[in-house]
Write a protein that binds this DNA or RNA. Structure first.
Lengths: 129, 129
DNA sequence: ACGATTGTTAAGCACATACTTAAGTATTCG
DNA sequence: CGAATACTTAAGTATGTGCTTAACAATCGT
């Protein structure tokens, strides 16, 4: 039902967030609503490019906008930010459950041989053969 | 500094998450490590396609893997999941600060008697959950 | 009414993505 | 050894993305 819809939405939401410019726009809108040209000002690209980014953001549901007169005012949609955040939170909590189980297991072991468990992302794990 | 690097990483992380199949792989790996063909089993696509998805995930830092013998074992990298989550959390908290400010402002308004026919606020005081 | 401001639409281009099939490489097992 | 297993690599293809420039509204101040 809404599971399917959420999945579709998440595609669009994460896709929208997968761009530095769009993340900057979202960050800016979190400080308060802004017009299109106001949003465009910091970026070294054409205004139509920004409009396209805004379309992506609006299609994803991260941003909403309303045009009054000749100025379109954009705002962030917190619920959508929360949607993405909660997907990640759900994954993390599962991982932590697992980590808890691992720790519980290690607590039963007599020799606490320290192993690194958190590495920087791009560095491959040390092989322990 | 590391800000720049984080931004670059976030591009890759959100891009990696912007695909239903890859999110399902991450979700599966949050339950525990798995081999490539084990990961491929639920999906109606070729094994090379899954390998390509895994490369995207590994490049993003969301997944790490190690090959032992002929089987490659993949695991999730919780720190990277947290990286994405915390970016969203930071945005959300800014938005909530704003909402707090709005609510504080509304609290200072003595008479909610609407005698002006100004355009009513487009965003209601309390957001829908 | 005129011109400046603010945004929109359309077309096009270079490059990236999500697959496919086909063929190859190790590694394990009988 | 030889066959099955578990990937890996390469090449091709269709579609999507992130821009650009050019031309076109609509609205506002004077």
């Amino acid at each position: 039902m809404l599971n399917n819809r959420s999945e579709v939405d998440l595609d669009l939401v994460f896709q929208a967030l997968a761009d530095r410019t769009r993340r900057a726009i979202v960050a800016r809108l979190c400080e308060g609503p802004a017009s299109v040209s106001e949003l465009a000002k910091p970026f070294p690209m054409s205004l139509p490019a920004i409009v396209q980014h805004l379309q992506v953001l609006e299609t994803s549901g991260l941003v909403s906008s309303e045009k009054i007169g000749r100025v379109r005012t954009c705002s962030v949609v917190p619920a959508t930010v929360r949607l993405a955040e909660s997907w990640l939170g759900a994954r993390r909590s599962v991982g932590e459950r697992r980590l808890d189980r691992l720790e519980a297991f290690l607590a039963t072991q007599p020799e606490p041989k320290p192993e690194s468990h958190e590495r920087p992302p791009t560095i491959p794990p040390r092989s322990t053969p």
